[in-house]
Design a protein around this nucleic acid. Structure first.
Length: 427
RNA sequence: GGAGAGGUGGCCGAGUGGUCGAAGGCGCAGCACUGGAAAUGCUGUAUAGGGGCAACUCUAUCGAGGGUUCGAAUCCCUCCCUCUCCGCCA
């Protein structure tokens, strides 16, 4: 959420910066609402002050010996009642305006960082670097896609998963299930060794949590909801981990707080019909290991470089070629101020696919979630950062495609062997 | 699911209608004392919003929302949450 004061003092900055996201908005209406709300607050609190004064006066007079039923006291009572009525009217108006203001502010995305490159969409993203040697098919060789390999080796079950749930769900089996588990453990250990505290949060989250991290109110149709309760299946660990410290004031010397969370993630993937229908790339339920920082506002820029480097380290440890791109303003997510995406090479598909997204959100989520830090006397909003470290299913897809051998088996990177218990997967 | 207890400041804990944003204690910070420290003493120490250059000041907040009253932490109603016991259960 954006600062209301910014709306009052410098609305041009908001229009200008959200313009970089491709939004054209007219804030004059909202500005008017903000100003009216403030005027109303002033009038109301002045009236209340007067009411408080009268209330005290009644107490004093009675204490001083005035008869409670005397006309003087009764007159004060009448005045008090009058003020009460006026306050009630103003309060109702104010409540209405505040709700309107909040509703509209909650629907506005974060301002992009000055460092984020301008652009309209995916095509304007900026490639920062490439790592590793993408495997290409040599002459006469055909590289399979991961779902073909998995099918051949019996790593997961697609059609029976529809029986259990519906399409876009998958059942991992045998070595496939074991590999998924090995990857989760490997990633958690790797990050845990770098100062991340492991957290296993609830994966049903309430709507306040979704609002706090930015998924609500705008993206309700992207999440699964439990109709009988105020609970949703979390679309990413970012949601529960943000709310881990909701409404808290964190002593500044404890920052940064770095968490690594493994959770299943659930997304409706509305509007992606027909895309990535096979395999592990786009599922309603997938596993993800998420990195999350709460940090001092002065240090979020370095933190962003670090959290991204920590995600890259997983790819490098797994010997998976990738490229790092910076998202342009038109392609960034709702809560992000600046985002790096990591795209892993899929040898069978012959393409880079997103496997991690590392964002700095500034104080956007912290304001929605009321997470502050206290540094001596000053209390201010923290900055939050999140990054996938990594999406587990897509990691498996990359390992299968990049490690496939002529004999049909899959060679695994050395780092994974202690976790998986074998150097290769074969039928 | 059944029965009971309870939600007050960073923490403990008093407060059952009136200058209560809230005693007291702990903790923390500053100062004094000390060669230094401990102990001691004094002072200060919530959050949000509005106004003011500032000192400061106004409003709200004692789980949440509503009600009674000139006035509510205190009385009434509804809801939420926590704890204990019983039942059930991975």
């Amino acid at each position: 959420m954006l600062d209301q004061r910014l709306l009052r003092d410098n609305p041009e900055l908001i229009t200008e910066q959200l313009g970089r996201r491709g939004m054209s908005l007219n804030l004059t209406g909202l500005q008017l609402v903000a100003r009216q709300a403030r005027d109303l607050e002033e009038r109301r609190s002045n009236l209340q002050a007067e009411g408080n004064r009268i209330g005290k006066e009644v107490g004093l007079q009675i204490k001083a010996g005035a008869a409670p039923q005397s006309t003087e006291v009764q007159e004060l009572r009448d005045q008090g009642n009058q003020i009460k009525q006026q306050v009630a009217v103003l309060e109702e108006e104010e409540k209405h305006l505040d709700a309107k203001l909040r509703e509209q502010l909650l629907a506005l995305p974060n301002l992009p960082s000055p460092d984020a490159p301008d652009g309209k969409g995916e095509e304007d993203n900026v490639e920062i670097k490439r790592w590793g040697n993408p495997r290409q098919a040599s002459a006469g060789e055909t590289l399979e896609e991961h779902w073909q390999i998995a099918d051949r080796l019996g790593l997961f079950e697609t059609e029976r998963s529809v029986r259990i749930a519906q399409s876009r769900f998958i059942t991992l089996l045998g070595q496939g299930a074991r590999l998924e588990r090995a990857l989760i453990n490997f990633m958690l250990d790797l990050h845990g060794g770098k100062g991340y505290r492991e957290v296993m949060p609830p994966i049903l989250v309430n709507s306040a949590s979704l609002t706090g991290s930015g998924q609500l109110p705008k993206f309700a149709e992207e999440s699964f909801r439990c109709a009988d309760d105020d609970l949703w299946l979390t679309p990413t660990a970012e949601v529960p981990v943000t709310s881990l410290h909701r409404d808290e004031v964190i002593p500044a010397e404890q920052l940064p707080l770095k968490y690594v969370a493994y959770t299943p993630c659930f997304r409706r993937e509305a509007g992606s019909y027909g895309r990535d229908t096979r395999g592990l790339i786009r599922l309603h339920q997938f596993n993800k290991v998420e990195l999350y920082w709460f940090c001092h506002p002065d240090h979020s820029a370095e933190a962003h470089q670090q959290i991204t480097a920590d995600a890259e380290a997983v790819l490098e440890a797994l010997e998976l070629p990738y490229r790092k791109i910076e998202l342009c303003t038109g392609d960034m997510g709702f809560s992000a101020a600046r985002t790096y995406d990591l795209e892993v090479w899929l040898a069978g598909a012959g393409a880079y696919r997103e496997i991690s997204s590392c964002s700095v959100c500034g104080d956007f989520q912290a304001r929605r979630s009321a997470i502050r830090c206290k540094d001596g006397k000053t209390t201010q909003l923290v900055h939050t950062l999140n990054g996938s470290g990594l999406a587990v299913g897509r990691t498996m897809a990359a390992l299968l495609e990049n490690g496939q051998q002529a004999d049909g088996s899959v060679q695994l990177p050395a780092a994974l062997v202690p976790y998986f218990g074998a150097e290769r997967i074969s039928g």
